[in-house]
Design a protein around this nucleic acid. Sequence first.
DNA 1: TATTGTTATACTCTATAACTATA
DNA 2: TATAGTTATAGAGTATAACAATA
Lengths: 165, 165
Amino acid sequence: MLESPHHQHCMPAKKPTTTDKRASLGPLDTLIGYHLRRASLVFYPDYRKTKGVRQGLVGILSIVAANPGINQISVGKLLLIDAGNLVELIDDLVSKGLLERSVDPMDRRSRSLTITAAGAAQLKEILERIKKMEKNMLGKLTTRERETLLDLLKRIHTSDVSPNA
Amino acid sequence: MLESPHHQHCMPAKKPTTTDKRASLGPLDTLIGYHLRRASLVFYPDYRKTKGVRQGLVGILSIVAANPGINQISVGKLLLIDAGNLVELIDDLVSKGLLERSVDPMDRRSRSLTITAAGAAQLKEILERIKKMEKNMLGKLTTRERETLLDLLKRIHTSDVSPNA
DNA sequence: TATTGTTATACTCTATAACTATA
DNA sequence: TATAGTTATAGAGTATAACAATA
């Protein structure tokens, strides 16, 4: 997104046209889903700028690091990534030497994933960058507020409810 | 996402393989960005299921309803949708008879957008569904917690900070 | 028969750039 | 020269389905 609407501050009161930027969101402004999405977008672009890392890659590295030998299906379930879409992501990490994929001798359908030394090093580096970035972006929140936010978010997405009405 | 990992409850303790679903997220679990994204995904699919409405459409209708005569650039800035990507979305709404688009006589470059009666009716209906859905999904939170969440989210994404480190 | 992984495909979302018409 | 809108294109993200190997 190149043109973010965050320029109100240092602007010399541009001549208001029919549609100035003081325009309102209308009822959208009352929807939690909208603000959740919007807040998550604040973080999203920087994930990608961080060393060309795509959406799932940090997640995959983190999970494999924490669960050596985990298989692809399990990783996908944790990250809500479809098995079919996971294949290329892991191909990518394997080809970069960050992960190793081998047939699980206990169940030859499964691929046993482990992180390499290079993968662990890269994960560490990326996590440090992300942490620093998050600290920057959450500067307006107190420590207590950040804890509250994390708690509320977890309680939302750790729900079993999958309403369809 | 067909296979969500929300099935722990009624399952008769499946034989644990090398990689059971009690696997951990690792350091990912400490990142606010991850939990924001994850929580926003809880809401996202249902937006789309609601009458085949795509990502931006509810937002566009809501903004045009609140700001009759607004132009496309302004709508795009409010929703962080690129001007080029907005065209087809508005085409869609116009072709469905939900919006009207006309040349602004004061500035013939601009397109003046207004919502139709059908558009207003549909917006009202969709908003009611979304509100109901949100109430469902936020059932675990008290009213006070919802207010807190909304406040924290707004403070995150209403930031002027766009860190690049 | 069910599960793991793979391939293919299609659709949405996002990003970039070139172009027009107006200002 | 700058802005509003349009068109085209390419890349990610996501969803669906068919298939092989294995259980």
